[in-house]
Amino acid sequence: MSRLRTNRIIDSGFRYLGIAATFFGLVILALFILNILQQGLGRIDGAFLTSLPSRRASRAGILTAWTGTAWILFLTALIAIPLGVAAGIYLEEYGKKNRLARIVEINIANLAGVPSILYGLLGLEVFVRAMRMGSSLLAGACTLSLLILPVIIVATREAIRAVPNTLREASYGMGATRWQTIWYQVLPAASGGILTGVILALSRAIGETAPLIVIGALAYVPFVARSPMDEFTVLPMQIFNWISRPQQAFLVNGAAAIIILLAITFCMNGIAVYLRNRWQKKINW
């Protein structure tokens, strides 16, 4: 066999390897989604969304689970967005660029990689026990806020760093204070990037189960939470609970709940992608 021929075979071999690698993940995901849709789609109706959990699979619904997820989403956003964006603004606009800043920066990046169950343990010790919040929505939201804070901080910093310095100088040059410059110029220009990061972080938070199990979220909650101090469940907990039961009917319920959770996550990611595209188009300095 000639050298040229061997090279060509290696070349096309690698091409097919690449295609296989690309489709491996996609095909598995597609099979999973098809399977779930086939099992659960028929189970989704108005009653499924508005019923309380029940021992009888046919009467059980996800009202407490999705309202719990909505509560958690809302409270986590309320806590994590201001903290994360403020920290990002401080580090990028006010903080000096010295060795301490670099250490802080590396540590924040590391925090983003800490396993979520450790955040659960931290939340259990600090929020549930020391601060006496109990296994409440608030404790859950605080824990998840800690979990996604590093992601929001990093996204905020990157978005702010992308704002050209000439814009800040123009503002300072007219007598604006730092805060005015940040509020009127930097944040509007960075808002698309910040929003994208925030949405991706939140969509991660609503899929988290481990830390919420640790802080004591319940799988069976027979009422809809009315205040942040109420006990709660969330969609992933409900899914876990149903899937681990032996009866086929509950597995169908689980599949239906998975469809709802996936739909929420895909929607949020879709919004994030849309905002990112719009932001990129708007900025052309």
């Binding site: 050209p164 000439t166 814009l167 100088e169 123009a170 503002s171 040059g173 007219m174 110029q185 509007p188 220009a189 708007k282 900025i283 300095w285």
Partner: peptide
């Protein structure tokens, strides 16, 4: 003491 910069830098 106002300032005009090298590259035109209007706000977006």
């Amino acid at each position: 003491v106002g300032m005009v910069f090298q590259k035109p830098n209007p706000f977006p």
